[in-house]
Amino acid sequence: MRLPAFEYLEPRDRQEALDYLARYSENASILAGGSDLLVRMKQRLVRTSYVISLKHLKDLDGIRPDEDGRLCLGSNTPLVSIIRSPLLQGAYRGLTDAIRRIGAPPIQHYRGTIGGNLCLETRCLYYNQSAFWRSGRPRCQKDGGEICYAEENSDRCRSANVSDGACALMALDAEIVLESREGERSLPIEEFFTGKGESPFARSPDELVTTIRLPAPETAFGSSFRKLTYRSAIDFALVSASAGVKVEAGRIARARIAVGGAGAAPLLLREASEKLLGKSPEDGDAVAETAAQAGRHAAAFMVDNLGATLEYRQKMAAVLVRKAVQEALARAENGNARGRRER
């Protein structure tokens, strides 16, 4: 398939990139590894006049702790650097487990970046198709039209966030730093996503995601990621789950559960997460109840648009949450070093 015509820009530094973004705004697309963007351009799902490459913005590539001990991931950091970073072991294993499941090693090694993964467009089988496939009938809402093929009479787009990294970052309570010529702002990850399938991100067109900030590593904190696919690689999630839990004095002190492949954002399941608070990590019933509730909530967001049957994906949400929570708890309790050997 052929790329449409566009003007290709290679800013030398961040300032130049922000200038271009300010100037071309909606008419520009940011190119990191391109493994999502170029496919969508070929399918004519993005119409863009300018493509702004981040390739010379070296300061966006790297993983560094800041003065408060928080970990800053430059948005243009290749996925393989995330997998290999010694800084991202232990408490952050939910993230590295997730990144290892993205596409296949060639995508992780040669193309994909963490920023691109965070900004992965939502997907739907009625939408992620060639221009020819979509021709011959009215456009759907995400495609600029009025209707929805996935869910009859839906007044909004029900496409799903299937980014493995985003799901894990949600459970890890990441912060997203955006920069434009006007200045910098940072959003808690749940505010970075709008929950709207048509326009899933709270990024304004002149903004660049520069950094993904993770809370400082803690002891007795564990994280995990689970993903359901039909194939071992090159397969987007039918549904995924990630958990981050903190154990204090034998009780669960904090928990964040996220489910991907359901809504237009990775779903942060607050109510279900709260069910765990104060419980013993060994409390199997509490985990089961949490998983069931998380599953019910996530199921309400799903429609039949990612493959497999809807019922199956709905059922699996609870199963994956259960497995993710169990694994995160085990990692929190056993210390992550031992958890590493488990794998």
């Binding site: 296949a104 089988l125 009625y126 198709q129 496939w133 093929y149 039909y230 194939r231 071992s232 690689a233 090159i234 397969d235 987007f236 493959g307």
Partner: peptide, 20 residues
């Protein structure tokens, strides 16, 4: 979807990989 094949590509038609 009617006459449209929903999975005409290698991404969506799940041919097994060596690792499978």
């Amino acid at each position: 979807d009617g006459g449209r094949c929903m999975n005409p590509t290698q991404l969506e038609y799940k041919v097994p990989l060596a690792a499978d």
